[in-house]
Deep mutational scan, measured.
Amino acid sequence: DEEIEKWIETLLKRNISLRVNGKDLEIGSEEFKEWVEKFIKEV
């Protein structure tokens, strides 16, 4: 979905790490990609 890709790009540009389930996810890491894929499937 384009919306999500733009959102991810924005996050990448800002180099933010997300806190997911109490863990810091490094943007661009494998864990982050897995989380994004799960997130996309749920939406």
Rank of each mutant, 00 (worst) to 15 (best):
E42T: 11
E31K: 14
E42A: 11
E30N: 08
D1S: 12
R19L: 08
E9I: 04
E31W: 07
E31F: 06
K41R: 08
E34G: 07
N21R: 05
N21C: 15
I16H: 01
S17A: 09
W7E: 02
L18Y: 00
K38G: 10
I40G: 01
I8L: 15
K13L: 10
E26F: 12
I8R: 00
E30R: 10
E37D: 11
T10C: 15
L25C: 14
G22L: 09
L18R: 01
V43G: 04
K13G: 13
G28P: 05
K33M: 11
I8D: 00
K23W: 07
D24P: 15
E3W: 15
L12C: 06
E37M: 06
I40K: 05
E5C: 15
T10R: 13
E9N: 02
I4G: 02
K6S: 13
L18V: 10
W7Y: 03
L25M: 08
K38I: 07
I8K: 01
I8S: 00
V36I: 14
N15W: 11
I4F: 13
D1I: 15
D24R: 09
E37P: 01
R14V: 14
V20H: 04
N15A: 12
G22Q: 04
E34M: 10
G22I: 12
K6G: 06
I40N: 02
D1H: 13
G28R: 05
K13Y: 01
S29M: 09
K6N: 09
E3L: 13
G28F: 12
V36A: 06
W7A: 02
K6T: 07
I4E: 03
R14P: 11
E9P: 00
E2Q: 13
S17F: 02
S17W: 02
E26Q: 11
N21K: 05
I16P: 06
K6V: 04
G28Y: 07
V43N: 05
W35L: 08
V20M: 06
W7R: 01
E31A: 11
N15H: 11
R19V: 09
I16S: 06
N21S: 06
E31L: 08
N15I: 15
L11K: 00
L25V: 09
I8F: 08
V36T: 02
N21D: 08
N21V: 06
D1G: 12
W7P: 00
E9W: 02
E31R: 05
E9S: 01
I16D: 05
I40Y: 10
E37L: 07
K33Y: 15
I16A: 05
K13M: 09
E42H: 11
E30C: 04
W7I: 06
T10Y: 09
K23D: 05
D1N: 12
I40W: 14
N15T: 09
L18I: 14
E31Q: 08
G22V: 04
L18W: 01
W35K: 02
K33A: 07
W7S: 01
L11C: 14
K41H: 06
L11V: 07
W35V: 03
V20N: 03
I4T: 03
I16Q: 05
E9K: 03
L25D: 03
E34W: 08
E42R: 09
I16W: 00
E30V: 10
E42P: 03
V43T: 08
W35N: 00
I8Y: 05
E26I: 12
W35E: 01
W7H: 00
K41L: 05
R14W: 09
S29H: 03
F39E: 02
E5S: 06
E5G: 07
K6W: 13
V36R: 02
K13D: 12
K33V: 06
I4W: 14
E2K: 14
V36K: 03
